[in-house]
Design a binder for these strands. Structure first.
Lengths: 205, 205
DNA sequence: TGTACATCAGTGAACGCGCGTTCACTGATGTAC
DNA sequence: TGTACATCAGTGAACGCGCGTTCACTGATGTAC
């Protein structure tokens, strides 16, 4: 039973890296089982078909991302009671997290699913949609709370601002991959942080 | 000769749409020639191999994008001599352009190449890198010029700010595809515009 | 404690299909004289 | 204007390989009595 999860996890780790590097269709079961040192039959013991692998990968990825955001912004709230300051700390922590990845972020499975959605069934597409809506909900609540104490300098919809966070994260990963510049993501997230600061922080002059 | 470019263009249009919907590897030559109503031999008359198709698609896409940005920001400069106002007009025009696409932006081939780069040779990866560096150069020049007249409220590197434009565009396309919300991109670009405005526009109060 | 059976986590061989690529050929159009 | 040849833009058949999937089997571990 420890072994089951071992092999299954090993399959998924290998598959995830390959999918992020060349797409889902180009990642063959053959190469996965070769790297995992099992046979094809072994793969199909763990997953009924290839689509089930996609689903499992995306579900795991989304759950992990959610946990990560939870931890990160919970930690930020521990460091400051003020909602704006906590958000700024959270974004800084996020940037640091990206900066600590030596080869840059390996890529976001949500973006892969978005860009290859004709490959997957409605089930997988729905998981993806819900995940992004979850991010919207999370950050929208954050910005709504900030807006209560800090009237924004610009009249922006909290949902749109929430999407802006996801937009910048997703976009920065694309950019850092395209340019092979691992540090780019962290830098872009700090720019986003600058915007949030500018938008909400009271002007002192 | 009109016919040659016709068929070649038809192949590329069909291929581009398919690649943006499911990735490069999953787009078979078989389905392309079926849709283009030619035989496989016909395809290989126009392209020596599948990688040549990828290269041709990316080159065409990058060139078209460059022309589009040229036209858009040239037009903006016609409408205002002031570099900041011209930039804000340019971003507004860009947002409108996105909003006019009824099904949303079909996707950016640069993002596809970034997320499936293990599929392509060094040649294709280089075209991609240069394209993104081109965007950086374009927008960096724009922001440097703005900064001459309008001291930014925040000390940001023009290159980073330039990348931020690309980041938001790329990210918003990912988001609008993931959520199947065609209008999202335009909205996110307007948020970016709001940031630029906030960053450079003199505070009146 | 020993035996019988069930389940788990795979193996290994086989399958047919679709893929990218090659190549000999062809009919229409263009060019030289 | 007619003929000979070249080029263009493909056709159509064939190729071998790798893909996802199936399935009968297996050896190790767990459970009942």
């Amino acid at each position: 039973m420890a072994k089951q999860t071992d092999t299954r996890t090993r399959i998924m780790n290998i598959a995830e890296a390959a999918v992020l590097a060349k797409g889902f269709d180009a990642t063959s079961i053959e190469e996965i089982v070769a790297a995992a040192e099992i046979t094809k039959g072994g793969f199909f013991y763990h997953f009924p078909d290839k689509n089930a692998l996609a689903r499992a990968l995306l579900e795991r990825y989304v759950a992990a991302e959610e946990r990560l955001f939870d931890n990160l912004f919970d930690r930020a709230r521990e460091l400051s009671d003020d909602p704006l300051h906590a958000a700024l700390i959270g974004l800084k922590l996020l940037a640091e997290l990206f900066d600590d990845l030596p080869n840059g972020h390996p890529g976001c499975l949500v973006a892969v699913a978005a860009y290859q959605d004709r490959l997957f069934d409605a089930d997988v597409r729905d998981i993806n949609r819900r995940a992004v809506l979850g991010w919207r909900k999370r950050f929208s609540a954050m910005f709504s709370q900030i807006a209560e104490s800090y009237p924004p300098r610009d009249d922006v919809d909290p949902d749109h601002l929430a999407d802006f966070v996801s937009t910048v994260i997703e976009g920065s990963v694309v950019m850092s991959k395209a340019l092979a510049e691992p540090r780019l993501s962290a830098c872009q997230i700090m720019l986003l942080r600058g915007y949030i600061k500018l938008l909400f922080e009271p002007h002192l002059k």
